[in-house]
C-alpha cells in the first residue's frame, strides 16, 4: 500500500503536470447542478481564450437562464444581457470595438424562443461574433419548462403529458435554419458527453474564435447538452438519454464551414 502511495507522490510533481484548470477560470464553485454541461463548455471557452492569449481582448455576453452567472466563472469582461438580447448586445459591443473578441453564451430559450429575432438578424448581418448555443431541450433556471427545442413526447413542467405537436408545435432546429443565412461563416453542432466529444467541441470553439479574428462572418457553435435536474435523470443517465433521443433530432457535425456570402450574389443589376 505504501508503495502505491509513494509512487503517487513521485508522480504528483509540477514537472509531471499534464492537465490543470485554466487560470482564465475563476476559483468560484459553479452554481450549476452536478454533471451540468455548462461547466464543461465554460471550461472549454476559458481554455481557448487562454491558449489564444486573448483574455484582455475578449468580452462575453451572458444570457438569462442558468448561464446568467457565466460572468462569475470566466475571468474576462462581461455584459449580462436581457433575455434573448445577447446577439444585439454583442452587435453593439463589436461594432464600436471591432478589434475585440465578442461572444454570446445562450441557452435554447434565450436564443431560440424569446431571442429568435435578435439571433437571426445578428447572423444574417454576418456580425463578426461567436455565438455559443447550449441546447438541452428544457428551461433549466425556471424549473424545467418546455423549450423551443423540447422533443415531441418529452415531459416538462409545462408539457406534463409530453410535448404535443398539436398544442406546442415542433422542436425547433434553429441551427439548421441559421446555416442557411448568408452571414454565417461557421455553423456546427457538437456535444460534451465523453472525452472525444469534448475535444471536438473545444476545436470547434477555437475555430469559431479564429474565424472572428479573420472577420469572416458569424461563427455559431451549438452544444447539445444535458439537464439532469430538468430531465430528472442522473448525469450518466442524462448522457445516455441525450445520445438516444437528442442526437437523432439534433445530429452532430458541421452544417456550414466557409465564410459569409459574397455580396455580389445578392446585388441588384443596376
Amino acid at each position: 500500500m505504501s508503495e502505491v502511495a509513494d509512487r503517487i507522490k513521485e508522480i504528483i510533481k509540477p514537472e509531471n503536470l499534464v492537465y490543470a484548470k485554466s487560470p482564465v477560470l475563476n476559483d468560484d464553485i459553479m452554481h450549476y447542478c452536478p454533471g451540468c454541461s455548462h461547466g464543461v463548455v465554460h471550461r472549454l471557452i476559458a481554455e481557448v481564450i487562454e491558449e489564444m492569449g486573448i483574455q484582455e481582448q475578449t468580452i462575453g455576453i451572458s444570457p438569462v437562464g442558468c448561464a446568467v452567472f457565466a460572468y462569475n466563472y470566466i475571468d474576462i469582461d462581461w455584459q449580462e444581457a436581457a433575455h434573448g438580447r445577447a446577439p444585439a448586445v454583442a452587435t453593439g459591443i463589436k461594432r464600436v470595438m471591432p478589434d475585440k473578441y465578442v461572444f454570446t453564451y445562450q441557452g435554447d430559450g434565450d436564443l431560440a424562443a424569446i431571442g429568435t429575432a435578435e439571433t437571426f438578424h445578428a447572423v444574417n448581418r454576418g456580425e463578426n461574433i461567436v455565438m455559443i448555443f447550449i441546447n438541452n431541450a428544457i428551461y433549466g433556471m425556471t424549473g424545467g419548462q418546455m423549450a423551443p427545442t423540447t422533443l415531441v413526447g418529452q415531459v416538462t413542467a409545462t408539457t406534463p403529458n409530453g410535448r404535443d405537436v398539436d398544442l406546442n408545435g415542433y422542436p425547433l432546429r434553429i441551427t439548421e435554419l441559421l446555416a442557411q443565412l448568408p452571414g454565417a461563416a461557421f455553423v456546427t453542432r457538437q456535444s460534451v458527453q465523453n472525452p472525444a466529444a469534448v475535444r471536438k467541441t473545444k476545436k470547434a470553439i477555437r475555430k469559431a474564435f479564429e474565424i472572428q479574428a479573420m472577420k469572416k462572418g458569424t461563427a455559431f457553435v451549438e452544444v447539445v447538452s444535458t439537464c439532469s435536474s430538468g430531465w430528472k435523470l442522473s448525469p450518466v443517465e442524462s448522457n445516455k438519454w441525450m445520445e438516444e433521443n437528442m442526437f437523432p433530432q439534433y445530429p452532430l457535425g458541421d452544417l456550414k464551414d466557409s465564410s459569409r456570402a459574397d455580396a455580389d450574389l445578392y446585388r441588384i443589376k443596376g
Binding site: V4, I8, I12, N16, K21, I29, G35, V40, P195
Partner: peptide, 30 residues
Amino acid sequence: YMENPENCTGCTNCAAVCPDSCITVYRAKF
C-alpha cells in the same frame, strides 16, 4: 477519488468531462 491508483495512465479523460474543473492530472514515465 482514485480507488485503483495503480491503474491510472494520466490520460486526462476524467478532466476533459469534468463540469467543475476540479481534476488535475499528472503523468510520468517509470
